[in-house]
Design a protein around this nucleic acid. Sequence first.
DNA 1: GCGACAG
DNA 2: ATCTTGTCGC
Length: 223
Amino acid sequence: MNIIHPWPDSPEAAVTLQQQLRNQIRIQPLDRPAETIAGCDISFNKFEETVYAGIVVLRLDTLETIAEATAITTTSFPYVPGLLSFREIPALLEAWAKLTILPDVVVFDGHGIAHPRRLGIASHAGLLLDRPTLGCGKSVLVGRYEEPALERGSWSPMMHRGEVIGAALRTKNKVNPVYVSPGHLIDLQTGIDLMLRCDGGYRIPETTRRAHNLVNDVRRANL
DNA sequence: GCGACAG
DNA sequence: ATCTTGTCGC
């Protein structure tokens, strides 16, 4: 079921829409094993309207980049904690339309259901793309967790209002964890496994790292 | 009421 | 997020 909806023009309308969309989210195992995974990100200059979006698709077995797509647009929606998707998704959808390969899973730089209304950017995008999506953030929006062990691979659940919403995952020994949460059509354990497989020796998974490098290159090239 | 608050 | 060099620690 592909969800389509008009884009809200105010933070108030956006919150109302999130309340409506949260019921459509499905947290479940993948339909089939993932072979490809995509990372996406956007870049911009502090007080400017131009937004540079990019998506990079990797093969999970070799972490080889097999496809890339970018888009340059403008955004008027402000950054408001909890409403990040309304600012970033439009640009990402334009890049998505240019992709020649359909990735099995899409990873977002932010959260999935680890969100006050369980509709972070990964969950919202999952509904619009009708694809498995995962959130992998560098800091917490909501939820509490016990510090996971210091070894790469260890993790502890992120809790919010009595629910497990994600995991604080150590992707590198003795380095701060990243925060993984399912977006849509995937479950937490699968998400954790996938993020650990996207290891390039850095704290940030290769999906996000490559997408970040890509959009920054495009932005600097356009200066 | 006060503090927190993805990118 | 972005602007930026050196610097502390393993």
